[in-house]
């Protein structure tokens, strides 16, 4: 039974196929509207993430399928102490595929090891969130038309941002990618990601604290939030936070075809004044996330022989 825990569970070829499916869904929605008739997706959300859950549910509905599940662990059997293994076995009796969100790292793998239907990791703590990366990749493909010859800036919290690590991992497999890491000293990309991903794959990268200085070279800018609780003291946070808030002013020297991405939800790290800029892609990214989840559900159900 094929499940998806990490974006690296897919080969580059498989990612290309998923993207091709998503593009076909976008062009021919009717062709897919009943492909999952009578099939059920279980959304097991042991911690709330309304955005991700709605995206999975919308994806399944648009394929003609149905959805069941829970949206926080208080209302689930987990609150009574049931193990993930037992939950996965039980839900496998009701649903054809599972999307699971859990605050602990590795929880999705435990579910996948025990379920008799495919499991999609919808986020396991700070570990992986592969469908966010799928959304990011489709956005890059649609906006740029390619995955090679790109200079990609990552800005904000690069230390704890799992979406950043995951996308860097995914991009490291393409040709002629340059990475620019823009963050305060306190939130730099962990050295193991630099060593195991960037250096290992010979990806050129530079680190800077200056977003404006890095801007002119970027084809793509992936923004993340600098969170107050990541700092030891309030002064450092207040001193630094504005440097990593994207405002029209900071885009002065940006390329005309820059693409600005953000995994959302946004708090204040991208000024709303940017929303109307054609370079803002973060709401398109949300929509792309739904299409990629549709493509992923289709792929896994087909491989399982369910459809």
């Amino acid at each position: 039974m094929r499940s998806v825990i990490d974006i690296l569970d897919f080969t580059v070829k498989e990612l290309d196929e998923l993207i091709d499916t998503a593009l076909d869904i976008i062009d021919n929605p009717k062709k897919y509207a009943h492909i999952c008739d009578g099939k059920k997706l279980a959304t097991l959300f042991f911690e709330p993430s309304t955005r991700t859950r709605l995206s999975f549910e919308a994806a399944m509905y648009e394929l003609g399928g149905n959805v069941l599940g829970f949206s926080e662990s208080n209302s689930s059997s987990a609150a009574k102490g049931e193990s993930i293994a037992d939950t996965a076995k039980t839900v496998s009796c009701y649903a054809d595929i599972i999307a699971m969100r859990h605050p602990k790292e590795g929880a999705a793998l435990v579910a996948a090891n025990n379920a008799s239907v495919p499991v999609i990791n919808a986020g396991d703590g700070g570990h992986c969130h592969p469908t966010q990366t799928l959304a990011d990749l489709l956005t890059i493909r649609r906006e740029k038309g390619r995955f090679n010859n790109l200079t990609v800036g990552f800005c904000g919290d690069l230390k704890f941002g799992r979406t950043v690590h995951s996308l860097i991992n995914a991009l490291s497999r393409y040709n002629n990618i340059k990475i620019v890491l823009i963050s305060p000293e306190e939130l730099k990309l962990p050295s193991y990601v630099k060593k195991d991903v960037l250096q290992k794959n010979n990806i050129p990268y530079e680190q800077t604290t200056d977003l404006e200085a890095a801007m002119p070279n970027l084809d793509m800018l992936y923004m993340t939030r600098v969170q107050r609780e990541r700092f030891f003291n309030e002064e450092d946070y207040l001193r630094l936070k504005d440097s990593y808030i994207l405002t029209p002013d900071k885009l002065k020297n940006a390329k005309a075809d820059l693409s600005i991405l953000h995994p959302l939800p946004r708090v204040n790290e991208i000024s709303v004044a940017i929303d109307s800029d054609p370079r803002a892609c973060y709401f398109k990214q949300v929509l792309n996330g739904k299409y990629m989840r549709m493509a992923l559900i289709l792929k896994l159900l087909k491989e399982a022989g369910t459809i």
Partner: peptide
């Protein structure tokens, strides 16, 4: 040893 790991909360794993 990772306190955020699922093995820390699911004892039988």
């Amino acid at each position: 040893k990772n306190p955020r790991c699922i093995t820390s909360s699911e004892q039988e794993l």
